[in-house]
Structure formats: structure tokens, C-alpha cells
Amino acid sequence: TETYTFDSEDQAEEFAQRAQKKGYTVEKRKENGKFKVRVE
């Protein structure tokens, strides 16, 4: 499980979609103005 942090929602969304296409489970959340994407 890895967590990635992005400054913009667009970046987080793009990353999450790519990860989902590769078959990963993706969980997105906003925390302290940053966008976190957890991938497993």
C-alpha cells in the first residue's frame, strides 16, 4: 500500500484513474488542503 500526495485535485484524479486502469484499488481523500491517493 502506497499513499501519494498531490497539490491539485486534477493531478490526484488523473493518477487515480491510471492506477485503477492497472487494476489497483484506489482511495482518494482530501486532507489539509492536499489530495491524497492511497493505492493497493
Rank of each mutant, 00 (worst) to 15 (best):
E2N: 14
K28V: 15
R38A: 07
V26W: 03
Q20F: 10
K30Q: 12
E9M: 06
K36Y: 15
Y24Q: 05
E13N: 13
V37M: 02
K21H: 08
V39R: 02
F35I: 07
Y24C: 12
N32A: 08
S8F: 10
Q17T: 11
K21A: 13
K22F: 13
A12F: 02
R38P: 00
E9P: 05
F35N: 01
G33F: 03
R18V: 09
V39D: 01
T1M: 11
R38L: 13
T3V: 12
T1C: 14
E14I: 09
Y24T: 03
A12P: 00
A12M: 09
V37T: 01
E27C: 14
E14N: 07
S8Q: 08
Q11Y: 05
K30E: 13
F15V: 02
V26T: 09
K30D: 05
K21Y: 08
E31W: 06
Q20V: 13
T25R: 12
K22N: 13
E27M: 10
E14F: 08
N32K: 07
E9I: 06
F15W: 04
E27T: 14
Y24E: 03
Q17V: 11
T25V: 12
G33T: 04
E2Q: 14
E27A: 08
D10G: 08
K36R: 09
F15N: 00
E13I: 08
D7M: 06
F6K: 00
Q20A: 13
Y4R: 05
G23A: 02
K36M: 15
R38K: 11
R38C: 10
E27K: 08
K34L: 10
F6I: 00
K21N: 12
S8H: 09
E13Y: 06
E9D: 08
G23W: 03
G23R: 02
D10R: 09
K28F: 14
K28Q: 11
Y24P: 01
Y24S: 04
Q11S: 08
Y24N: 04
V39W: 04
R18M: 13
R38T: 14
K34E: 05
T1W: 15
A12T: 01
V39T: 04
Q11E: 15
K28G: 03
K30A: 11
E40T: 15
T25F: 12
G23N: 03
E31Y: 05
E27N: 09
E14G: 05
E14T: 07
E27R: 07
K22M: 15
E40Q: 14
Q11K: 10
Q20M: 14
A19F: 12
F6R: 00
F35L: 03
G33M: 04
G23S: 02
D10H: 09
E31A: 05
V37A: 01
E2I: 15
F6Y: 02
E40A: 13
Q11G: 05
E9V: 05
